[in-house]
Design a protein around this nucleic acid. Structure first.
Length: 453
RNA sequence: GGCGGCGUGGCCGAGUGGUUUAGGCAAGGGCCUGCAAAGCCCUGUACCCCGGUUCAAUUCCGGGCGCCGCCUCCA
């Protein structure tokens, strides 16, 4: 049984499912107003691994992740760039999926868009109004949170201790600073949809409630997102579900933020913050490994050193896969599978699980070194088998050789055969300077691309 | 001000009341190799500070210090 930290309870609990063998999961997705950054990459990878692990265990996962394609920030950007908001949203969503594909993240089962749920959101807000939870103010319709039983569950502190939205600008007739917009009336040049309160657009907190309940049904299993969404976003989603009288998520999971180390991550210092920058220098798999090597609930520092470490660690995994490539590997080790599963089920302890993987790598190499071929292959099979729920395809290799490189390799093999080591070394140096890693083997010179470090 | 988290060897990062080590990267030594690379073996003797509980604490309790997150759009 998978155990995870449930934010609503503040402790690690069994993830009991509405329907055994199935997991209905809602992952709070992006607002597509700007380029995806490495924090987005982390969150996608965390839940990608959760999903892959469960599927590896035979659980069918219904993975819904939204795309917020109408929002103040999209409107602001479009306005400042003299473009339509649709154009901005479409372009940024494209960038989103490109980055996530590059990370090898499985696409969600469904990706609902806010703009296609406006009608349903209008109905929900009308229902909240008729139930007495919503009221009209000068610039829109607001949710009166004080009327919601248990408000503050996810914030984990009483309502009156919250610093009451001190800096939020609101209309004079807003009843409490904590009240949030359900419907924003459109100013003249803003995109709008028809509604009983006048043309406008839905407030951000409404889409996730409506879409998750529509696609996953009442009492779905798991609602996830960044720790920064815990309050007020998720709190407000929950408040609406409660007010609507609809059972909401059974469990809440939140992951830690990526820390940029202040100036250390600024582009001016040659670092990266966007996924595009990161992926230009490192493999997507390396970032995946870096993410796995930190625990999902802890803050994670992403620096060039961390990425270089991860890239080298990945090399080690790939090296074993290459070493046994083409061989009949045999069955994975059952005991190792169980230990791995135990770590994963302990609140997704991926750092420990990855540690086990490397332990197996060492044992496999050791066995192969000492001629215990069958044992070595079996251990290598175990590594490959356990890498799969982590979303890591191992082996790399397959770097295509251009004609010039192939010629250098051939010349080097000839030189070595003639024991002309001076030439062989010069040719190796030439290959290295062209960005190849050179390894000798019984079959001759092997080269592969050096990874970004 | 409120709520919460964290502080482990050069770096990243698990874990545990005591006897056997997480794991990766980096470093040093060795084996292997024509030389390398890859791989293997060995080495480092870590747990913020101060009290307390205990036969025994890095691991539990209290206090302190430091760092961080949320309370405001945010993955």
């Amino acid at each position: 049984m998978l155990r995870v930290h449930d934010t609503a309870l503040g402790r690690v609990v069994d993830l009991d499912q509405r329907q055994p063998g199935h997991l209905a999961m809602y992952v709070c997705g992006p607002t597509v107003y700007d380029t995806p950054h490495i924090g987005h990459g982390r969150f996608v990878l965390v839940y990608d691994v959760l999903r892959r692990y469960l599927e590896w265990r035979g659980v069918e996962v219904h993975h819904v992740s939204n795309v917020t394609d109408i929002d103040d920030k999209i409107i602001d950007r479009a306005r400042s760039e003299g473009r339509s908001w649709e154009e901005v949203a479409t372009e940024q969503e494209k960038a989103w999926w490109e980055a996530m594909d590059a990370l090898g993240a499985a696409r969600p089962t469904e990706t609902p868009h806010a703009t296609r749920y406006v009608e349903a959101m209008v109905e929900a807000v009308a229902e909240l109004e008729s139930r007495g939870y919503a009221y009209r103010a000068a610039d829109g319709v607001y949710m009166e949170v004080a009327r919601v039983e248990g408000y503050g569950l996810l914030a984990r502190q009483p309502l009156d201790s919250l610093r009451a939205g001190a800096r939020v600008e609101g209309p004079a007739d807003k009843r409490s600073p904590l009240d949030f917009a359900l419907w924003k009336l459109a100013r003249s040049d803003e995109p709008s949809w028809e509604a009983p309160w006048g043309p406008g657009r839905p407030g951000w907190h409404t889409e996730c409630v409506v879409m998750s309940l529509d696609l996953l049904g009442e009492g779905f299993d798991l609602h996830t997102g960044g720790l920064d969404l815990r309050f007020p976003h998720h709190e407000n989603e929950r408040a609406q579900a409660v007010a609507l009288g609809r059972p909401f998520a059974r469990h809440w999971m939140h992951h830690g933020m990526v820390e940029t180390g202040g100036e250390k991550m600024s582009k001016s210092l040659g670092n990266f913050t966007t996924m595009a920058d990161l992926l230009a220098r490192y493999e997507g798999r390396a970032y995946r490994l870096a993410v796995l090597q930190s625990h999902y609930r802890k803050p994670m520092e992403v620096t060039p050193a961390v990425m270089a470490d991860a890239s080298r660690s990945l090399d080690r995994l790939d090296a074993l896969a290459r070493r046994v490539a083409g061989a009949e590997l045999g069955e994975a080790d059952e005991g190792a599978r169980e230990r791995f599963a135990a770590a994963m089920e302990d609140d997704l302890d991926t750092p420990a699980a990855v540690g086990m993987l490397f332990d197996l790598v060492r044992r496999a190499n050791s066995a192969l070194d000492s001629g215990r071929v069958e044992e070595g292959r079996r251990l290598a099979a175990t590594v490959a088998s356990l890498a799969s729920p982590l979303g890591l395809a191992l082996g790399g290799g397959g770097d295509a050789l251009d004609g010039e490189t192939a010629s250098l390799v051939a010349r080097r093999d000839r030189a070595r055969a003639e024991r002309d080591y001076a030439s062989a070394d010069a040719l190796r140096q030439e290959l290295v300077s062209r960005g190849w890693v050179v390894e000798d083997s019984p079959g001759g010179t092997k080269v592969r691309r050096a990874r970004g470090l």
